[in-house]
Amino acid sequence: MAEVESLLNPFVKIRRDLHKIPEIGFKEFKTQKYLLDYLSTLPQDRFELETWETGIFVKIIGKNPKKVIGYRADIDGLPIKEQTGLPFCSEHDNYMHACGHDFHMSIALGVLHYLVFTPIDDHVLFIFQPAEEGPGGAEPMLKSEPMKKWMPDIIIALHIAPEYPVGTIALKEGLLFANTSELFIELKGKGGHAAYPHETNDMVVAACSLVGQLQSIVSRNVNPLDSAVVTIGKISGGSVQNIIAETARLEGTIRTLNEDSMVKVKTRIEQLLEGIIVGYACEGSIDYGSMYHQVFNEEELTREFIEFAKKEPGIQVYSCKEAMTGEDFGYMLKEIPGFMFWLGVNSTYGLHHAKLNPDEKAIEKAIKLLTNYIRYKGSNE
Score class of each variant (00 low, 15 high):
Q32F: 08
L42K: 15
P65H: 08
S181M: 02
N380F: 07
A131V: 05
G70P: 04
E274L: 10
N64A: 08
G237A: 14
P162Y: 13
Y331Q: 13
I315R: 11
L171R: 00
F329P: 06
A157F: 07
I232V: 14
I336P: 00
I243N: 09
E327W: 06
K20G: 09
H352M: 03
S319D: 14
R220S: 12
L36A: 09
C320F: 08
N297G: 06
P79I: 00
A309Y: 08
G275M: 01
F329H: 03
F103L: 12
C282M: 02
L250Y: 01
A98I: 00
N64T: 11
Y376S: 12
E300Q: 13
T253H: 06
T200N: 04
T348F: 09
I61E: 04
I169H: 03
I120E: 02
N94D: 15
M340F: 12
V240P: 08
Q44A: 15
S227D: 10
R72E: 07
I155V: 15
A2K: 14
F341A: 04
Y38G: 02
L351E: 04
I56E: 10
A157I: 10
P87T: 10
D226P: 05
M203P: 00
D122H: 08
E186V: 10
E322P: 11
T31A: 00
A323D: 11
L42N: 06
S209V: 10
L333M: 04
L115Q: 08
D226K: 14
K63G: 13
I14R: 11
K30M: 11
T267F: 05
P358T: 03
E364G: 13
K368A: 09
K311Y: 02
G174P: 04
L49A: 10
T54E: 02
M332R: 12
A178N: 09
V317A: 07
N357D: 14
I14V: 15
A178V: 07
I107E: 03
S239G: 09
